[in-house]
């Protein structure tokens, strides 16, 4: 994989604009966002409801189209790709962890983890697989189906699935939104460990200051614009910033 001049940036967006609807009914979800995400960093995106944080993530991940602006995943400008190319890009370079409904109910945990590789027709790196499974602590649960797993276990399977294909970026959309605080903490620590130990780049959307405090950096959105950011955040500093934004 060849890299661009700035090796530190796994993902960049320039002048990112997203408009839904037309004329009077037009809603400006993003109004020219400029942002970069460093390789091997854990970044959280925060903001009040309607600030455009989910839209930003969908656009960055190539799930949604943009109205204007550019997005680069590594050296690829994804805003120029068609649906087929985007699909292949997601397959090769992007991992996902959603809030809910991350797993196919017909497949076992292991089959779910291996699914992205199977779709891409690639062989799993057995060493990586074992390491991921050890880290997630799911060895005994591999043969179980999603309905036989707890919510926290399901999310951990989802994270393992995202990790297994060694993507350039993992996008996590409210990964702890449906979990109790203990399971949530488990999943978040696991995400942080995968950044530290596997050098994974993670972008997470959340509205929970505690979840955001696990990240290396938090960026804040309001009304479709990037307004501020925090480095090495704590739950308290995140909460203070949010309160300031809402005011």
């Amino acid at each position: 994989m060849t890299m661009t001049t700035d090796v530190r940036q796994a993902l960049t967006a320039r002048g990112l604009t997203k408009v839904y609807g037309q004329g009077d009914a037009a809603v400006h979800a993003l109004r020219g966002v400029e942002v970069g995400f460093a390789t091997g960093a854990f970044t959280a995106i925060m903001g009040p409801s309607g600030s455009g944080k989910s839209t930003l993530m969908h656009c960055l991940a190539g799930l949604d189209t943009v109205s204007a602006g550019e997005i680069h995943v590594g050296d690829v400008e994804i805003t120029k790709l068609n649906d087929k190319q985007l699909t292949l890009l997601r397959r090769e370079r992007i991992g996902f962890v959603f809030q809910a409904f991350n797993l196919l109910p017909t497949l076992t945990a292991e089959q779910n983890i291996r699914l992205p590789l199977e779709i891409a027709g690639r062989q799993a790196d057995q060493v990586l697989f074992d390491r991921v499974i050890e880290t997630v602590g799911l060895r005994e649960r591999l043969g179980h189906r999603p309905t036989q797993l707890s919510g926290g276990q399901q999310q951990r399977v989802a994270v393992a699935r995202a990790l297994i294909s060694k993507p350039q970026v993992i996008f996590a959309d409210e990964p702890t939104g449906n979990l109790d605080s203990r399971s949530g903490a488990e999943v978040l620590s696991f995400l942080r460990r995968s950044v530290r130990e596997l050098g994974q780049t993670i972008v997470m959307v959340t509205h929970d200051p505690v979840a955001a405090s696990y990240a290396d950096r938090v960026i804040f959105l309001r009304d479709g614009l990037l307004v501020t950011e925090l480095h090495q955040p704590t739950a308290q500093t995140v909460l203070d910033t949010l309160l300031k934004l809402e005011a």
């Binding site: 991940a61 799930l63 649906d83 087929k84 699909t87 292949l88 997601r90 397959r91 090769e92 996902f96 959603f98 409904f101 991350n102 196919l104 109910p105 699914l115 992205p116 779709i119 891409a120």
Partner: peptide, 16 residues
């Protein structure tokens, strides 16, 4: 619907 969307997000193409 959501299952299909998940598969698409994970890299299943439309023809697939």
């Amino acid at each position: 619907t959501r299952e299909s969307a998940l598969l698409r997000a994970l890299g299943l193409t439309r023809p697939q």
